[in-house]
């Protein structure tokens, strides 16, 4: 059977200084639809590099990457933009919302680039998504008027705008207090149950505990791959 995400012998080499740095060193991995994967590891282990390449934000130096059965490595920048727009959603540690822009406009943004919906449909869907993440009444707030946890919910709503099959999250709770972190992780768990594939980088064990599969990375290699039932 074909996997949603399949990488083979993937390497990312930074030509920094005299010694080239192998951030990823011949990694192979497959992730199936609906999985909730946590990638863990110390800083510099290559976990973020892995996530960025899986998310088509960065390009691998060597190896192959099949996303939904389609080869991604070696695609043009415009093609990668289309892939990100249609198939991938992102949640970042520092939220990356457009400043001085209302929550609702931030959520609508991915569809502006996709152009799938009419203006009315887009607004309606953005409002639904905000309600879904628990921010029903705060559509007109700008990021500065929202707490960290609320900003991250806006970011999640934005990631869901184009109904991507995969959600990538890079330390999504890294800037949040414990209470907000748990709320965000509960939201992820719900999304996972609805069938959205989630790949998340974290270095906190209790956050990783929400995921069904744990990958541990060290020096550009996957050194452990545990699959188990989600703790919740």
């Amino acid at each position: 059977m074909s996997h949603l995400i399949e990488i083979r012998d993937l390497s990312k080499i930074y030509a920094q200084g005299e010694e080239p740095v192998r951030a990823l060193d011949g990694v192979s991995l497959s992730i199936d639809e609906g999985e909730f994967v946590a990638i863990m590891g110390a800083s510099g282990s290559g976990k973020s590099t892995m996530l960025n390449i899986l998310g088509c934000l960065d390009t691998p130096t060597q190896g192959t990457y099949l996303l939904d059965g389609v080869e991604v490595a070696g695609r043009s920048r415009t093609e990668l933009a289309h892939i990100r727009n249609h198939k991938l959603g992102f949640v970042f540690q520092n939220f990356n919302l457009l400043p001085r822009t209302s929550a609702i406009e931030n959520v609508e943004l991915p569809d502006l680039y996709m152009g799938r919906l009419t203006r009315k449909q887009r607004r309606r869907r953005a409002l639904e998504l905000l309600k879904r993440v628990g921010l029903g009444g705060r559509g007109t707030h700008t990021p500065a008027q929202l707490s960290g946890g609320q900003q991250q919910r806006v970011a999640i709503a934005r990631a869901l705008m184009n109904e991507p099959p995969v959600l990538f999250a890079d330390e999504p709770t890294g800037n949040l207090d414990t209470k907000s972190s748990v709320e965000i992780m509960n939201l992820f768990t719900e999304l996972s149950k609805e069938g959205i594939t989630i790949v998340m980088v974290t270095h906190e064990d209790d956050i990783a505990a929400f995921a069904g599969r744990h990958l541990l990375m060290k020096d550009g290699h996957i050194v452990r791959d545990d699959k188990r039932e989600a703790a919740s």
Partner: peptide, 19 residues
């Protein structure tokens, strides 16, 4: 700096270089 971050975000959610 702010603009380049904005560009990064826009590209991450699907803006092509042309856009």
């Amino acid at each position: 700096t702010e603009r380049i971050k904005e560009i990064g975000l826009r590209m991450a959610i699907g803006a092509t270089p042309f856009m």
